[in-house]
Design a protein around this nucleic acid. Structure first.
Lengths: 354, 354
DNA sequence: TCTCAGCATTAGATCGATCCAAAGACATTA
DNA sequence: TAATGTCTTTGGATCGATCTAATGCTGAGA
């Protein structure tokens, strides 16, 4: 007879380990062993217990396990209030990836709402004390982020999505190599024949922004292309980007690499203002592959972060850290990928044209 | 002396109720009462216990409480894999709102990853059995959604974000009055002088889409405006929308109300194709207030869902249901709000112009 | 003086699983 | 035969809180 997967009683699942034990004619401890150390049981006993387990639809109570083992199999995640449209338009994808990776490892994500304003410690202490959370995933890590040091000090496992940008590195992290992304963007543009490639970035001082600028710069240098006068800075909103990019266009840039899709969109506006079209007259590359990028017209080439992989790696590093608190720090830098769309369709002005 | 908020021992918080009791010179039960039924204690005892509690930084262990009270104070939420950019570009806002509302009520959100493809039951049973989740919030409810009936059958409290669109209503829900949103959009356009107002919707059969279409239709009728030949249908992607809207424009529509921002963007493309500009030549209204809407040029007028309020109401209804499983169903329909931007800036063609 | 409310507090069992140590079964060896 | 060892299985305590029921205490009324 195939193993029955009969559903548990309609009214919740008050099936306890003891009940399974009675049914299988063994002691509770044996049932526990059947689940946690099957190799301790004689094969026939194991089979009998397993049969009882799924005939009764037994599921161990996490609360009881947590109480006894002091491990909740929960991973805390502080969800930030949605910022002004700029950073993290893709956090739900990341969250899904995290959840999935955690589920597959037998863990679950426990959410709590972070207060607005920069990253703070609020909430973390409570989750630790009340829920015995096994670890945390941090996102939107920032300069002067107090969380890593605070968690490290009390020996709580955590992984940051984002490396430390100031001071020494603390703890484990997973990050996306922004420099590599903009570097690839420049490569792509150079291959299309562009030489006057500008960079539209955030004001210096943000780790992420500086990293992405760096990639542009090194690729330019590698190709012997000048960067002077080809870089502008702008705050995170479209309007600021639009005016910030003008000098670059005036200086004859044939391509713009932007530090974010939002800023790339600012380029779109600036171009349209002077009756030029992205992709046809000036190539534009964004960063993040936000939902907007794919539906713009012309669609925006952009650097996509491998969020699913980031989620998986976060969970992997976190589990490793829990297994061995003294292990050397795990740091994973993932490669983003360039998504080529219409905004970089046309060849650069120096390219041989028909 | 002000109540001390000294931090707990740096190494986690192994402070138990019994330790607090010893320190305060009372029995464990009295400490428990101090927290859960303070009115049972003599004021001076209460004060003494409270002092001990926060001197020691005591936090009750959720695991132990869950085990004893069979209530985990957890709310389950199945997070869907990010769909093709169309539905739910705003789910992270909703999640934050949920988390915040839950936190304030002493609950937390427990995430699990839903498998791709329509809503299924996978995951719900496991959370129930293992974690004793107190209830669920469902989102992306769909026609033929099996979850409501399944949960209702086993007496599990839940709230849907989205009413039932087929069959009879089951359980509690919170929803946004889509019809009211499109109705308001039409009102706004009529006030600007528009009379040939078209609707670009999804294929009939989706509850949400039909609801939004209904609002347009009733507002048109109220103003004695014809709707024949002013309605087109399109799948959820921009390309499909672009071609679907053409006949409407050919028929002389001066304004288009779209069922989503994505479809509205399709209008943008179609207009640009014929050298017309949204807002100047043809007014366009979207739905959802996605991040894209605000950064387009011209910025897109759109109907915004009150996601924070939806989150709050979801939690409120859920708590009410837990408190009284037999209470009559709670159903809350919230009003969306029209966000007027540049795409509806110019007066309609029939308006008296300068 | 004794009983009997009424109040504040306490004792002990309990939720469901896992830890530890010890007991039983069985074959092997002195 | 008794002692030794291996391999399974079991008993009882335990995690930290809350439940029920019972206790000690006080003062009012008989």
């Amino acid at each position: 007879m195939p193993r029955s997967t009969s559903s548990p009683s309609p009214k919740g699942s008050p099936v306890t380990l003891a009940m399974v034990a009675r049914r299988a004619g063994v002691s509770p401890q044996t049932v526990s062993n059947a689940i946690n150390s099957p190799d301790l049981l004689r094969p026939e006993t194991l089979e009998r217990v397993r049969a009882a387990i799924d005939e009764m639809g037994y599921r161990p109570s996490r609360a009881a396990q947590t109480l006894r083992t002091r491990s909740s199999k929960l991973i805390g995640y502080g969800i930030q209030p949605v910022p002004g449209g700029d950073t993290a338009p893709v956090m739900d994808r990341f969250l899904h990836a995290l959840s999935q990776a955690a589920d597959e490892a037998g863990y679950r994500m426990l959410l709590f709402a972070c207060p607005p304003g920069g990253p703070s410690l609020e909430g973390y202490e409570e989750l630790l004390g009340q829920h015995d959370v096994d670890g945390f995933v941090l996102s939107n890590t920032a300069r002067q982020d107090p969380r890593q040091a605070w968690l490290a000090k009390r020996g709580v496992p955590f992984v940051g999505f984002g490396r430390m940008w100031s001071g020494r590195q603390i703890g484990d992290w997973v990050d996306v190599d922004g420099a590599s992304g903009t570097d690839a963007a420049v490569e792509h543009l150079v291959a299309l024949g562009h030489r006057r490639i500008a960079f539209l970035g955030w004001p210096r001082g943000s780790g992420v922004g500086d990293d992405r600028a760096e990639g542009w710069q090194r690729a330019m240098r590698r190709h012997g292309l000048p960067t002077r006068g080809r870089r502008a800075e702008s705050a995170g909103d479209v309007e600021a980007a639009r005016s910030a990019v003008k000098p670059l266009l005036d200086a004859g840039a044939t391509a713009v690499v932007a530090v974010s899709d939002t800023l790339a969109l600012g380029c779109y506006h600036a171009l349209r203002e002077r009756d030029a079209a992205p992709g046809r007259d000036v190539a534009v590359v964004g960063f993040d592959d936000s939902p907007t990028a794919g539906i713009l017209s012309p669609s925006l080439s952009t650097v996509a972060q491998p969020l699913e992989a980031v989620g998986r790696e976060c969970v992997r590093l976190l589990l490793a850290r829990m297994a061995d608190p003294a292990a050397s720090p795990g740091r994973v830098l993932l490669e983003p990928s360039l998504v080529v769309r219409d905004s970089t369709a046309a060849p650069g002005s120096d390219a041989p044209g028909p």
